[in-house]
Design a protein around this nucleic acid. Structure first.
Length: 968
RNA sequence: GCCGGGUUGGUGGAAUGGUAGACACGGAGGCCUCAAAAGCCUUUGCCUGAAAGGGCGUGCGGGUUCGAGUCCCGCACCCGGCACCA
């Protein structure tokens, strides 16, 4: 980049605010702030408390937090620190308005990218991760972020993950007590079984008859962390399972683009479903963007409906019921067939309903061309299992399935209904079985058309299409209609509205024990284990019977062992019949261990769990550890937690006062963290049932991507604009708005902007670009606008040639005072509402006013202007503050307070409209009366001209700003 | 398909139902300078006009209102999320 504006020359002013001076100022004050510890927030007690708890009792607290970064090797671009700058501005503003502000930043450092990077470069993940953290800290330090460095940590620190493991054990050792509607220690459940207060559930022998392994198995059904065989995304090419979010829409791994298969593997899960209702309900009291709340609500997916049993006989002749979940129990009379998920238990094993031969007159289309039902079912199940999710989705339009050969009985109409299996019914939702009502569900409609199944209209269409589904193009699924054709067996729903019918039939089913009203959730339990090296080891060992035992707290942290090779073992990418080999399992000495768990069993041999936790684990509770980061006895001291996070007026569940981060974590991190928070709350470890009271999503900084004729991105910095077109090396290129990043060759780093203009300019520009929550394109050319603002600010206080302070001790004039107090008033409101873009506009207006006025700026105005700027551009503010003669930091200086007497202008502009069109403008006193104003307005020449002598029908006067005259 | 959010000058954006375009970038012109840079000043929604002025204007079509970028109804397009969830 050119540096013409900083070119040295004889005329250059030595005290001009340019990059070199900005760099000097910024480095100097950053060192000063560090040395003085100005950002250190006192705790009420403990090692981070000030003398006698000073600073905590005498002022309100504010906990301001960022979603912490993942230290990638690529370094930061200017988009990354947007949120960090915003929270920093708000934190600084809050300090100046008298708050004890907790603001710090840690690092989320476990996870696949670090491991992959380490594999590629051949270095240990810890080495590369720590180097990345160092680089990122250096980049961030340049921005002047006011973090309490004593509270920072990385999730890979054993002192930190000791407590991640501890929380896992808390969750493992808990169960959800429906009666108390909260999690309780598993010991309370064992007591209930032992005392006989609680009986073992159906299918289990009594507690007293169970052996140790049996009891462990039973408790596993209750624990909030439990192992189970679940289908997972297995990627042989990477040698590891992947989270859903690590698999592309094409069913391939995001890294390496390898195929991903479903495989059943024994995995750890978290029973987040136990909290579905509370996770849903507690959203109401949170100050979060509606869009995010909605995403969580949809993700949790609560639906009210009913479970209904359809009698069926197994092939062996036993009586069973196919239980379905439906939200449309009102259409039960219209259920003309049933569908089970291909994996449903009633189509395999001893309880199978699949008969030996097709019933007489079975429709040819139903059999799929197979000679027997079991052949057809087996073939379909195999085909469904081999399909990836993506294929299943792609085929969604085409309904496939096959008849099981079995019939069930519709419990209200008494009719025999054929039972199918089809992959449009998912095993993981509801009961994995549906009653199909083709006339009133478009999926059932499509299936019924394909398989020539009967349809019965039981809700009279309100759109005039008639009651014969034969002529319909699609199902009638509207709720705004009445029930028809629904009578029999002492029950009639005819004439009722959908809502009335739902209630009526639910009662009827309940009375007869056929069904019951129920609530179903879409939310699934959280798969919590990964076959990777770079994650928290599970504090679990297995005995010779394969029973899992928790490590005692005294054995934490269980540190990651060294292994010969921490990379996953990879396989033929296209071979699904492989299984992962966990890196930790390669260290036999670590895996096979003799321990005394202190449970009275004495020292014996155990095998360690060799899975690791997912990268979400560390970020599930970090807001708690910032509070009390060095506590070796507890994850957080209860008093300290209550001080910073406890419930209070308007925040019934407690939590962080402001949490800023990207919207991409809407249903992952933010849901997981809420879940852990509630478990810890239930178990009495914290007073806050929610981690984040107020959430704010910052927008993305976008950048133009330039592509040549082959579609390849070209370096954006070298593209020229000519005649409305874009050129790179003489070739015409196309421009599109996209993400910023190395691969698109359009990354701009904070380092280069800081080098060119200084950190204060960068901070100001990022805050001035637009509202914080909106995405917008980066424009390096426009940065200079904020640079000029700081230069004018500087010149309003300091002589560029001598470095002398130029302010005058003379009293400011009326105009200066009004400009000042209007700015103070506006900036204060904007800052409090995170509207930093308009706050900067108001600062600019004041500064421009002072520039334009000429002459020395009155000291009282200059000082308050500096204070207004301090949260946004802290370095230049600190420098000017000291040059103005102060010896203490601007960081804790009180924010200026507006004097209402000067906030209003001396005169206001009143517009005079005729029929809503502006015809004249008047300068009037704010106190003018309506009568005076009306008379004045009517006397205006342009107004009289516009009226042209017409009669006046009405005059609307809104003194002192507006008069609107409506002619007859 | 369903659910959210959006659409304002050449650009980023600003506007408790009451002056549309604050503030900034970019453009044009000027001052200063031997010259340039920087800085400062003026100007900059569109059309029309020498000017004064006039007309038009917040994605499109309606509506409510004395008055609509803002509220209501319908539509188009863009962005994001979910997606056979019974």
């Amino acid at each position: 980049m050119s540096d013409t504006h900083s070119a040295p020359g004889p005329a250059a002013a030595p005290f001009r605010y340019e990059a070199a001076l900005a760099a000097d100022i910024e480095a100097r004050w950053q060192d000063f702030w560090d040395a003085e510890g100005v950002y250190e927030a006192p705790n009420p007690t403990g090692d981070l408390a000030a003398d006698g708890g000073a600073g905590t009792a005498d002022r309100p607290k504010k906990y301001i937090m960022d979603m912490f970064p993942y230290p990638s090797g690529a370094g930061l671009h200017v988009g990354h620190p947007l949120g960090y700058i915003a929270t920093d501005v708000y934190a600084r503003f809050s300090r100046m308005t008298g708050h004890n502000v907790l603001h710090t930043l840690g690092f989320d450092a476990f996870g696949l990218p670090a491991e992959q990077y380490a594999v590629q470069t051949g270095t240990h993940p810890r080495t590369s991760t720590e180097a990345n953290i160092g680089n990122m800290q250096a980049q961030l330090r340049r921005l002047g972020l006011g973090h309490d460095k004593r509270r920072s940590f990385a999730t890979i620190d054993p002192d930190y993950y000791k407590w991640t493991q501890w929380i896992f054990l808390q969750i493992f050792n808990s169960w959800y007590d429906e009666a108390a509607d909260k999690a309780r220690p598993i010991a309370t459940l064992i007591e209930q079984f032992e005392s006989g207060e609680r009986e073992t559930p159906a299918g289990w022998r009594p507690w007293s008859e169970l052996d140790a392994a049996g009891r462990a198995g039973l408790l596993g059904e209750y624990r909030l962390a439990y192992a189970s065989d679940a289908p997972v995304n297995w990627c042989p090419g990477l040698g590891t399972v992947l989270a859903n979010e690590e698999v592309t829409a094409e069913g391939r791994s995001e890294r390496g683009n390898f195929p991903v298969f479903k495989a059943k593997l024994r995995q750890w899960n978290m029973r987040i479903t136990a909290y579905a209702d509370r996770l849903l309900n507690d959203l109401d009291a949170l100050d979060w963007p509606e869009a995010i709340k909605l995403q969580q609500r949809n993700w949790i997916g609560r639906s009210e409906g009913a479970r209904v049993g359809f009698p069926v006989r197994t092939a062996a002749g036993a009586e069973r019921a196919v239980t379905v979940f439906t939200t449309r129990q009102d259409t039960l009379f219209g259920a003309t067939y049933m569908v089970l998920a291909p994996e449903h238990e009633l189509v395999s094993g001893e309880d199978s309903i699949v008969p030996a031969a097709w019933p007489e007159d079975t429709h040819a289309v139903w059999t799929g061309g197979h000679a027997t039902p079991s052949e057809a079912v087996a073939a379909y199940r195999k085909q469904a299992a081999s399909k990836s999710d993506v294929e299943r989705q792609a085929d969604a339009k085409e309904k496939t399935g096959v008849f099981t050969g079995a019939y069930a009985v519709n419990p209200v109409s008494g009719e025999r209904v054929p039972v199918f299996i089809a992959d449009y019914v998912l095993m993981g939702y509801g009961t994995g079985a549906i009653m199909a009502v083709p006339a009133h569900d478009s999926r059932d409609f499509a299936f019924a058309r394909a398989f020539e199944l009967p349809m019965r209209c039981v809700v009279e269409p309100s759109d005039g299409r008639g009651t014969d589904p034969a002529g319909w193009d699609d199902a009638f699924a509207s709720y705004d209609a009445r029930i028809v054709n629904s009578a029999g067996d002492g029950l009639s729903l005819d004439g009722l509205t959908v809502t009335e019918a739902k209630a009526r039939i639910t009662d009827w089913l309940t009375e007869r024990g056929i069904g019951e009203g129920t609530v179903n959730f879409r939310l699934r339990d959280w798969l919590f284990s990964r076959q990777r090296y770079w994650g928290e080891p599970f504090p679990i060992v297995y005995d010779e019977d394969g029973v899992a035992h928790p490590l005692p707290e005294s054995m934490l942290p269980l540190e990651l062992p060294e292994v010969d090779d921490y990379s996953p073992r990879t396989f033929d990418p296209d071979d699904p019949d492989t299984s992962p080999e966990t890196p930790l399992s390669r260290n036999e000495e670590w895996v096979n261990v003799r321990l005394d768990l202190g449970d009275g069993r004495g020292p014996r041999m155990y095998r360690r769990e060799t899975n690791t936790m997912p990268n979400w684990a560390g970020s599930c509770w970090y807001e708690l550890r910032y509070l009390d980061p060095h506590n070796s006895e507890k994850l957080v001291d209860p008093g300290i937690e209550r001080y910073w996070m406890g419930p209070r007026e308007g925040q019934p569940h407690g939590g962080v006062d402001l949490y800023v981060g990207g919207a991409e974590h809407a249903v992952l991190h933010l849901l997981y963290a809420r879940f852990w928070s509630k478990v810890l709350y239930d178990l009495g470890h914290v007073s806050s049932a929610e981690p984040f009271h107020k959430l704010y999503n910052q927008g993305m900084i976008q950048a133009y991507v330039y592509r040549d004729s082959r579609g390849i991105a070209v370096p954006a910095a070298e593209v020229e604009e000519r005649d409305g077109a874009f050129w790179y090396e003489g070739e015409k290129v196309t421009r599109l708005l996209g993400k910023m990043g190395k691969s698109l060759k359009n990354a701009v780093t904070p380092d280069e902007i800081c080098a060119e203009y200084g950190a204060d300019t960068l901070r100001l520009y990022e805050m001035a670009m637009g509202p914080l929550d909106v995405s917008r394109p980066w424009d390096t050319r426009a940065v200079v606008g904020q640079y000029r603002l700081l230069q004018r600010l500087w010149r309003n206080v300091v002589d560029e040639n001598t470095g002398e302070v130029t302010v005058t001790d003379a009293e400011p004039g009326e105009a200066a005072l009004r400009a000042l107090h209007k700015a103070i008033d506006g900036v204060t409101q904007d800052m409090a509402a995170l509207r930093f873009n308009t706050a900067i506009a108001k600062v600019t207006e004041l500064n421009n006013h002072l520039t334009k006025a000429g002459g020395p700026v009155p000291r009282t105005v200059a000082e308050r202007l500096v204070l207004l700027v301090a949260p946004l551009a802290p370095h230049i503010a600190e420098e000017l503050w000291h040059r103005l003669g102060h010896t203490t930091s601007v960081v804790h200086e009180p924010f200026p307070v507006a004097d209402p007497a000067y906030v209003q202008d001396e005169t206001v502009t009143c517009v005079v409209q005729v029929k809503g069109k502006v015809k004249a403008r008047l300068e009037v006193a704010p106190s003018i009366t309506e009568g005076e104003l009306e008379a004045l307005a009517l006397a205006q020449e342009p107004v009289r001209a516009a009226l042209g002598g017409a009669d006046i029908r009405k005059v609307i006067v809104r003194a002192p700003k507006l008069v609107n005259i409506v002619p007859a």
